[in-house]
Design a protein around this nucleic acid. Structure first.
Lengths: 300, 300
DNA sequence: ATTGTGCTTTTAATGATAAAAATCACCGCT
DNA sequence: AGCGGTGATTTTTATCATTAAAAGCACAAT
């Protein structure tokens, strides 16, 4: 077969919902209006109209379209469980790779993966291609894909790259003019750190999100699409690993809060070099945590 | 139809070439040996063998395969002009985008582009997806692709990103131990600069390649797959723009050689800060050149 | 002039299909 | 038994025809 008619079915059902709100024998809006309202092309609207006319729900002659009878529940078209979207696919794929510790060098099987993730093979192909630049995946010369895998090497290089980007961001941050809105954000995030620190015993789990916000803030002062793109990969991977390594979690998080605070204090004092040094320390810790988490997971 | 049989045809012709070197009635090697020699799977070898047997060129019963008659020229299978490879596609695509100055926001037409570049639609899809991270291209929500375009913004951000990476590389370079092989490479590249400078009047065109080698050398000391990946994009784009902006080319190149030499002198003196400063100057010039080249091209 | 509809053309997502690779099963020889 | 080979079968992936959806065109009605 070809394209799914999911769009048609959804539009059809939405149209039923709309018709139900209308009084009997009411005149209907134009095709273009419906098209924009439902977010589909006019072709789909026309197909829906025709179906509805055939089912005796409305009558159409030219532009004089009218409601004939109220739609019933059995008029709805069932829609098969749809394919998952791109973001969902990304999440599931990374989860699979990282959680099951797929060995480096594994040849990926498109068909099998496509079934596993419930996507058409094409979508998977495209997804893998888009992952190409992240260095996790490689195209085999004679077709097929190979998972390069999330190795220790990879983690080291990722951390170093992260360090390059983030130290640069810290330097830029320290040089911001006093009236830049980022300073207000920084004060807010600092308070959140202090707040979390006061109740760390109980809520140490909340650190992961705060960590994400902190690094996002630091990097936000560098307006650069390439940096932003990589930041996505980086935060994704670090985020995933934080989820597992539960050893010493409370301790690690408390220490990390301290390191964050030192960076922020130095920044607020406009002391660039001190901020850079503090950031360097923090990133080193972060790298160590990532590596040890990998070692632990690998032995498991 | 399905997969092309290009592989089969190529293997077939290669096999003919091989058979021609053999004496009459000679016994042939095993299928596996041919498979590895021709770089294809055994299935293809068998298909070729069968065809050759059907054409009366060889006789096969079990493992006793023998040459029956020498192959003639008309036994060769014609192979239709094959699809172009990935690198070729990349080159052509960038050439198209940059040279024809395709306006930002243009919706790309897969089918048309596939015809234009002589690739199957699928290959193009995959290529566009792989370009996703480069920020030149965007997936439209309801299918299709949009060219974000090579705008001034893009050039600025690319240059800044390049600066972050390359300054980091320069710092690493200055800190290398004295016995690192990169120092020898540096001396060689420096001599090449001096050499080109002495004959700049005539050979100023040769600078583009030397420039590429210089920056590649600087970045080679950072062993990082992410850096390497981006370096590819960066050098590609800068390379393309160098090709057009012919204004003042001789002057620009001479000046650039001087800037390169200053960086190298500082490096050889192990003066990190001086090298960084020189690199900063050079990258600023480079950025200006790129921007002005774009302005010139845009008005044309 | 604007808004709407009927009809046609174009485009891209999907599944079927065939080529190629990988795997299995078995044989003959040492 | 173990190695090197062939025959047959089973995946697996690149390509293409097909169809839903979008875009475009011409004209009618207000």
């Amino acid at each position: 077969m070809a394209r799914t008619d999911t769009r048609f079915r959804q539009a059809h059902n939405q149209m039923l919902d709309h018709l139900r709100t209308l009084p009997h024998d009411a005149p209907l809006a134009s095709e273009v209006q419906f098209a924009t309202r439902l977010g589909v092309s006019r072709t789909v609207v026309r197909a829906v109209m025709q179906k509805l006319a055939a089912d005796g729900i409305l009558r159409q002659d030219g532009r004089g379209k009218r409601l004939v009878r109220a739609p019933r529940d059995k008029d709805r078209l069932p829609l098969r469980d749809d394919y998952i979207g791109r973001d969902e696919l990304e999440a599931r794929f990374l989860d699979w790779v990282l959680r099951f510790d797929v060995p480096a060098g594994t040849a990926l099987n498109i068909t099998q993966l496509a079934r596993q993730f419930n996507v058409p093979t094409h979508a998977l192909q495209e997804f893998l291609a888009s992952l190409g630049q992240s260095g996790l995946i490689e195209r085999r010369p004679r077709g097929g894909w190979r998972l390069l895998g999330f190795t220790a090497d990879y983690a080291v290089e990722l951390s170093e790259f992260r360090q390059v980007l983030e130290l640069n961001a810290v330097r830029s941050f320290a040089a911001l003019p006093a009236d830049h809105p980022a300073w207000a954000d920084l004060a807010r995030v600092r308070d959140e750190h202090l707040d979390l620190l006061s109740r760390i015993e109980r809520d140490y789990h909340d650190f992961s999100r705060l960590d994400g916000r902190f690094h996002a803030l630091i990097n936000s002062v560098v307006q650069n699409r390439f940096v932003a793109e990589f930041q996505k990969v980086i935060s994704l991977i670090f985020h995933y690993h934080y989820q597992w390594d539960k050893t010493m979690e409370r301790f690690r998080n408390e220490a990390a809060i301290g390191e964050h605070l030192r960076i922020m204090t130095a920044l607020e004092a406009r002391d660039g070099p001190a901020a850079e040094a503090a950031a360097r320390t923090h990133l080193a810790t972060s790298k160590e945590t990532l590596l040890s988490s990998m070692r632990g997971h690998h032995l498991a």
